[in-house]
Structure formats: structure tokens, C-alpha cells
Nucleic acid binder design. Structure first.
Length: 483
RNA sequence: GGCGGCGUAGCCAAGUGGUAAGGCGAGGGUCUGCAAAACCCUUAUUCCCCGGUUCGAAUCCGGGCGUCGCCUCCA
């Protein structure tokens, strides 16, 4: 059965039937790098990373484009405040964004086009719209004539009348109609600008995506993504431009991710309530954060909370501990019980089926936990079947991790939350050794005291049958103030 | 005011007509000197409220309440 994807345009799940068989083209709206990246930016990146990995797993060749809006009002303002060039400011935050995405295990898109590198394509697009009568120039600005598109509003479910009634925007003098929007803006002398048939200026916000998506993917492509907050006006305008220019729809399926909220309120730079990734990643396992973003369906809002993140990390530990237990296992000639064998073998099929259904990562995780439970049951029963079950669990977890990315934290940049990079400091080892002697001679009160000292210092002590070991306390920096 | 989404156990969260996944937490147990960690078991006769359709509804329809987003830059 084909992969089903919810299309904002039709408000229903549709089968994904790529334009080119075996190949899926994706354009996702990226960020404007004028400030630190926050969790809200991480969500679409992580979601699309999982989608991309799943499509590849299903055998598709994926072409993935995500842009950077490296010229806009906010960027210009920020550069002026700092006395730096727009380019330098953009460069700095693009680097930070890419660092954070790397830490989250996000595969880079195949192309990350910048507006400033695509001016010729943008100018050509604007000119084309003017030539076709869909746009008009006024004093160095160029506006799109919305009235020319009878079905304007089809993505956001608004009628032109409704938009007119609800208009809160001050009508600009130059526009023929308040709903018209800028394709090109005249640039003052002291701001960055490019020469154009209408004078020196720079692109409007929406035109870049129409121009760059078609340049990198062609006039038609399969999936277009972005945050749900971009539906209007950004994507609505993008549709109007592209359809006016090409004479046909450009993106086939529009996919929108829900927003990350904080204390029930949308996280956004303008509200100043963002949780910055560089700060969060400095004290959080990146893979815990990554999968936390995948723990709910991509279209649902995600209420971010430290407690929620911590709880999710606790749960993830069960997946990881089974992995540690079985990762070294190999195939065996021993056969197991037919019933549970079928159950374990069926994991990958169920897991992929969950993702086939509109990329339901929440359900995919539920399958993982059932795999752990099933495998544990068999293993705790002992006998030769334990090894078989362990091996099958290993295969299943590896397949799931391929897409969800909850394992192998050592493969991602080290988090400062990991004390001594997996190693236990010498002083901790020494205390443990001394404590061990105390325990063996029955001085438990003293042993408990040592355990408490280590706990305060950020180390948990686990006494096994053979030996004791120290593990870093979860979600806490070693030796510093407690949360 | 207009448009759209959501409301499922203490918390998070799947499920869009066939009789409530999963996680956290909690309770019980195994292991342990005691713990911790890990593991096992248990934990919603019921899905915001009121009507309706249906043999059957968390799921469909109507109304209400609550909540979030968009209508201005935003992932």
C-alpha cells in the first residue's frame, strides 16, 4: 500500500504518487538566520529528516531542498544594530543552525539555497509575472495582483471576501488592492539591494520559494513543507505566484507541521519566549531532544516542557538498555517458539506501516516499546530462545533507529551533559573501590555514606552481583548546582 | 469578528464506524545487605458536554463549552 500523506490543500490523506516513479522531490521552508535557532526551528527539520529517512527506507530516491532567507527586514535591522554586514550576521546564524541540526542527527538537505545566491532566478520570476499581467510595478516596488487568481485562498480556506473583512493591515498607498503583496521591494540607498528593471531593490518574502523550488526541483515537485503558521500568507502567496507563472500547480502535496508551544503559547522570536537550541543542547542528550520532537504526530502541537523532555528520556532508556544487551548478538541456528518468533519478525513491518500512515512517528515508537516488551518476555523466560529473541530485537531496533535516531549518542557531537565522555573519573573509581571493601566487611553505613557523596557529586551507584559501577545522573551536570 | 486545528487515564499521547496502542508516573513483584538501575505484572467498561444518525460512535452530523493557531514577521 502506498504511503499516505495528509495534504493541507485537500484536508485529507492522499496516497503519495511521485511525479517521477521511484523519486520524491521535497521543498521545505527554512529559516531566516537573524537570531539564535530555537526548538521551533528544530521541529520541522527533525520531522522532515525522519520523513526523508523513511522514504529512502521505502526505496525512493529523495531530492530535498531547504532554503535560507538570508536577506530581509529583520536581518537588515540586526546587522545595523551590530554594525556588521547582513551577510556576516546571516553567516553566523546559519552556521549555528547547521551545527544544531547536525547535533540532532538531521541529515543535511541536498541543497540549501540562499536568496542572495538566487537573484537572477528571482528576477526572472518577477519579470515573468509582470509580462504575463499578474504583477505591476509602482515606484520601484512590484506587486502581485491577487484578483487575477480566482481560487486565491484555497490553501488556507479563506475567501477573498473573508480576507477583506478581516483585514488588519494598513492598506499601502501603492497597492491597487490591499490583498496584493510585494514581489519586489525598492531598497533605500543604505540597505542591501540588487539592480532590476524596476530599480535597485530586493525580493519580497514569498517569491524566493517559488523561484528556488522550481530552479532546484523543477516547475512541479511532490512535497512542500513548512510550519503550520506559514499557511497564510506565505504559502498561499507562493501558490498564487507559482500557478500564475507556470500555469499549473507546482507542489502536489502541502505538508505542515504543528508548532512547538511553551506554557501553552506559541514559541516565536518576536514573542521572545524561544528556548534556544545551543543552550538546550548544552545540557541535554541531543537524541533525547530529537526523539522528543518525534514523540507526537508531526501535525499536532507540541507543548515543550523540561518535565516532558526528562520523562521522555526516561522512557528512551528502556530502548537503549535492551540495545546494549543485544547489540553484540549474531544469528543462531537455534529456533524458537513459532508464536513469538512471528511477533518479533513482524516488528519491522508494523513499524514501517505506522510511518506509511502519514508518518506517524508516535505509533512507530509505540511499536518499538512493544518490541522491547516482547523480546524481554522471551529473554526472561531463559533457554535457547533468549538468544534468538535478542538477535531479532537487535535487528528491529537497528531498523527503527535508522529512521527515528534514538541510539548511538556517541555518533553525534558530545554534549557537555556527558561527564568525562563515557569514562569515570579516577577519584570516583577510587571511592568505589574503597566502598566495595567496606561493603564486603559489612560496614554498610559507611558504604551508604560514600554512595551519598557520589550522588551529590552527580554520580549514581549501581551495585551488581559482581561489581559496582558509577553512572552519571541523568539530566544533570556533574558537580554543579542541581536542577 | 472571520478561517482552521484540537479537547482520550494523575501527566504526555496513538487511535477517524466494530467494541480504548504506547510512554511517564503510581502500586505490586523479581534481583539486592538496603537501595538504585534493570526486568515482570497491574493501572480508562470509557474518550469535554448535550442532542442526532447507525445493529454498533472516541470515531459521522448538529449545537454548546474550553483551548491553540492564522488573519502582521514567524518553523
Amino acid at each position: 500500500m502506498a504511503i499516505q500523506v495528509f495534504n493541507t490543500l485537500t484536508q485529507t490523506k492522499e496516497p503519495l504518487v511521485p511525479l517521477v516513479e521511484g523519486q520524491v522531490s521535497i521543498y521545505v521552508c527554512g529559516v531566516t538566520p537573524y537570531d539564535h535557532a530555537h526548538i521551533g526551528h528544530a521541529r520541522p527539520a527533525v520531522v522532515w529528516d525522519a520523513i526523508k529517512r523513511h522514504l529512502r527506507r521505502r526505496g525512493y530516491v529523495v531530492r530535498h531542498v531547504q532554503n535560507f532567507t538570508d536577506i530581509d527586514d529583520k536581518l537588515i535591522r540586526r546587522a545595523r544594530e551590530r554594525g556588521e554586514s547582513v551577510r556576516d550576521v546571516a553567516e553566523q546564524y546559519m552556521a549555528e543552525y547547521q551545527w544544531a541540526m547536525g547535533a540532532l542527527g538531521v541529515l543535511p538537505p541536498d541543497f540549501m539555497p540562499r536568496v542572495t545566491d538566487n537573484l537572477p532566478a528571482i528576477l526572472e520570476f518577477v519579470s515573468g509575472l509582470v509580462d504575463r499581467g499578474y504583477a505591476y510595478a509602482r515606484d520601484g516596488d512590484v506587486y502581485f495582483r491577487v484578483a487575477k487568481m480566482p481560487d486565491y485562498g484555497k490553501l488556507s480556506g479563506r475567501s477573498r471576501e473573508a480576507l477583506r473583512a478581516g483585514a488588519r493591515v494598513e492598506p499601502e498607498e501603492n497597492k491597487d488592492d490591499p490583498q496584493d503583496f510585494a514581489l519586489w521591494k525598492r531598497a533605500p540607498e543604505d540597505q542591501p539591494g540588487w539592480d532590476s528593471p524596476w530599480g535597485r531593490g530586493r525580493p519580497g518574502w514569498h517569491i524566493e520559494c517559488s523561484a528556488m523550488s522550481s530552479r532546484y526541483l523543477g516547475p512541479r515537485f511532490d512535497l512542500h513543507g513548512g510550519g503550520i503558521d506559514l499557511i497564510f500568507p506565505h504559502h498561499e502567496n507562493e501558490i498564487a505566484q507559482s500557478e500564475a507563472y507556470w500555469g499549473h500547480p507546482s507542489a502536489r502535496i502541502w505538508v505542515h507541521n504543528g508548532l512547538v508551544t511553551l506554557s501553552q503559547v506559541k514559541m516565536s522570536k518576536s514573542l521572545g519566549n524561544g528556548v534556544e537550541l545551543r543552550e538546550l543542547l548544552s545540557r541535554t542528550d541531543p537524541r533525547v531532544l530529537r526523539t522528543y520532537l518525534l514523540s507526537v504526530h508531526y501535525r499536532s502541537p507540541l507543548e515543550f516542557s523540561e518535565e516532558g523532555l526528562r520523562d521522555w528520556g526516561h522512557g528512551l532508556q528502556r530502548l537503549r538498555s535492551l540495545w546494549e544487551e543485544v547489540r553484540a548478538l549474531g544469528p543462531t541456528s537455534v529456533f524458537g517458539d513459532r508464536a513469538w518468533l512471528e511477533e518479533l519478525w513482524g516488528f519491522e513491518r508494523r513499524f514501517l506501516a505506522a510511518l506509511d500512515d502519514d508518518f506517524n512517528t508516535a505509533r512507530a515508537f509505540a511499536e518499538c516499546y512493544e518490541l522491547v516488551r516482547d523480546a524481554r518476555r522471551v529473554r526472561s523466560a531463559g533457554g535457547p530462545g533468549a538468544a534468538v529473541a535478542g538477535y531479532l530485537a537487535k535487528l528491529g531496533l537497528a531498523a527503527a533507529d535508522e529512521i527515528l535516531g534514538f541510539l548511538d549518542p556517541e555518533k553525534v557531537p558530545a554534549s557537555t551533559a556527558e561527564p568525562a565522555e563515557g569514562g569515570v573519573p579516577r577519584w570516583v573509581e577510587m571511592l568505589l573501590a574503597v566502598r566495595q571493601q567496606a561493603r564486603q566487611s559489612g560496614q554498610y553505613a559507611w558504604a551508604d555514606q560514600v554512595r551519598e557523596v557520589l550522588w551529590e557529586a552527580g554520580w549514581g551507584v549501581e551495585d551488581g552481583r559482581e561489581e559496582s559501577r558509577a553512572v552519571p545522573r541523568a539530566g544533570r551536570k556533574t558537580g554543579t548546582n542541581a536542577p
